[in-house]
Design a protein around this nucleic acid. Sequence first.
RNA 1: GAACUCGUAGCUCAGUUGGUUAGAGCGCUUCGUUGACAUCGAAGAGGUCAGAGGUUCGAGUCCUCUCGAGUUCACCA
Length: 767
Amino acid sequence: MDKHFDHAAHESEIYWLWEENGVFNPDNLPTANNNRPFSIIMPPPNANDPLHIGHAMFVALEDVLIRYHRMIGDDTVWIPGTDHAGIETQFVFEKKLQKEGKSRFNFDRKTLYQMIWDYVQENSGVAIEQMKSLGASADWSRYKFTLDPDVVEKVLDTFEKMHTDGLIYRGRELVNFCTHCGTSYSELEVVHKEQVSPLYYVKYPLAEKPSKFITVATVRPEPIFIDTHLAVNPNDPKRKHLVGQEALNPITGERMPIISDEYVDPEFGTGIVKITPAHDPNDFRVAKKHSLPIREAINTRGKITEAGGKYAGMSVAEARKAVVADLTAAGLIEKIDEKYVNRVGTCYRCGRVIEPLPMAQFFVKVKDSQNNLTEKVLALLDEKKVKIHGAGREKILRHWLDNLYDWNISRQITWGIPIPVWYEIKGYENDIEVGFINDSGEYVYGSLANLLNDYQLSEIKKGLQQVVAAENVPYIISRTEPAAKEYLPETDTFDTWFSSSQWPVLTLKTNKTGDFDRFYPTNVMETAYDILMFWVMRMLLMGVYLTGQAPFRDVYLHGLIRDKKGQKMSKSKGNTINPLSMSETYGTDALRMALIVRSTAGQDKNIDERDFIAMRNFANKIWNASRYIIMRFSQNPQYILYRGQKPTSSDTVGDTNSNFHLQLEEKAWDLSRSLQNLRLGVAADQVYNDFWHWFCDECIEENKAGKLPDEAILDGLITFLKLLHPFMPFVTERVWQELRAAELVSEPLLITTSWPVDIHDQKDNQT
RNA sequence: GAACUCGUAGCUCAGUUGGUUAGAGCGCUUCGUUGACAUCGAAGAGGUCAGAGGUUCGAGUCCUCUCGAGUUCACCA
């Protein structure tokens, strides 16, 4: 054996040894107890992205659990997958197009989809290969991609079922729209940022006495021209007399009735609010309540609509300037509070301001009176059917569930699963807008009624890019084009999370026959806490809907990996740690151990190159302790073919030896308990200290001094290799092969040996 | 404004239902290369566990308050 463990020389060979023997697939392990399933569904990384340190974290943690459960004889499976990551991927692809001087508007939908598909295929092997190099003992024969045809079919099944059950509906609601990214988002994708916005005090003439004014404070003067109503609080003694009166729109001069609603805060501004239903969530609610007209001033490109007259076509910012200038000229600006601070919704992707726009889209009803999904999930939490591990995150989850709005699942992007809906054309030509590439390769957009004057429907369909159907247009759900009448397809795709939220069900139902019954509900869902709401919460909602059960029993939320100073890692800061290069330099075992040791669920972890060095040294310690013992035995021919059986008390040298075995077993139990309780950071710390500071520092030294027999020390090594294996799989397996070569052990692979203590035995005895 | 998390050795962090001299890594001091490992070993310095009060036979661990750090949420135009 070499003096130092050379990870680079052994790792890929060892991984290949495992793969070749098929040990990741539970179907090949007949010794596993079929009554004790243990399954983890891997959080699928983006198919076309290289792994970052967070991915290394999940691989390390989940692989520890998987290897441990495999060794204790559970029927263990880790199902890997990758995600098409709709918006992220399309965004990256569009950047690529941009570099080539093109944009998504140059291609019809089908062509663009195919281009992205090819692009993703080119890169999709990267994530998988990297996970393998991190030692992931996942069952690759069960690998799934979120756009696999069988997965897509199941997602469409879910959509149809929920639609039939009334849990998915199409409605014209105010959605969070990013005019730059060109798509709507759910409430989770909106980042509220504090900013200084001038607050304009605008004077409105009273209809009866135009020489008298009332003043309204607003940060959004630009859509004033479509405003139809003002509102005051019905209990506001100073202003309730205004109810029923009318003011004049300061831009258009239209009469504006003044209504009353509780939502108006008499203390804020002037106590009078202008109602802009189409572009403010509160106003939208008020408008629905009072049946006010919903007139749009801003379109999906962030420009002022035709209704804007002279302002039409301006951007929101330009229009604001122009409107304020006109109001000022007319003497209708009373004052401007330049220091006013408010919170504005911005796009999590591009950081630009989100425009609330009324659009007809598909929503998941989360609080249906017949089938209240949030209540069901809360009940699961109450009954402890699902346990959240991670520093108070359960309360945050509960708070979200209590306050959740319906989930907008329509996205105006191409890269995703198309929503299987077709809109009827005849009689609704005026209610459908269409964007398409005509036969001359030009992008054309307009109402279908107008376009049909110049184009054949077939040409429109051929180059189809976008269909925007009003709420009243009838639709049918179908995976293929219906033949009965003329239809245009929905061009929106599902929110990526709509399919991801079904992932535990999808992966098990589209895999080998019987997998669903065998492994559902899964045991542990392990992921970063920052996607608790995006993913975990929605998996609970969808899981309980589809199966009546939680999709997993334990949720382990790991923290973010930060740099030495506790700063978030980001490419722009240049403080990222590439897990693959750390793995190359210090070894995968060192990388994994450094991430796990003393980590706590839900708590961020600062990490530094020194941590990897320390654990590289630990791997070397394991190597050298083994080297000492192997050398000791190889120098002594009588030990050959020693099988590692526990020496009986009769072959011991007094009390030291039996005491040694007692302690060894106790340490194995302690470690097992930590692993059972998902205290992985503690477990790693325990095994580190037990091995180094007890086994090496004390026991091996005692052996050198002749106080502990060689059989005992070999026994200890074998036990510790097993205990260490889930954390540091490569060096331990490599040492095992050395032991085998020296005929000190007989089992071919450490990965499939049994755990030193029988954790189930004790459990069974207790019950 | 609210919720959540954290404040333990010089630095980065562990420390299951409260229980003997509070731990690790790195750093620091002194010594050690007689073949497992200098990617090491031995010995050691260093903490009134943010502060105050309370519960208890006993609190880093539970409760209250204060201070400080961070995260998230919130419809005030």
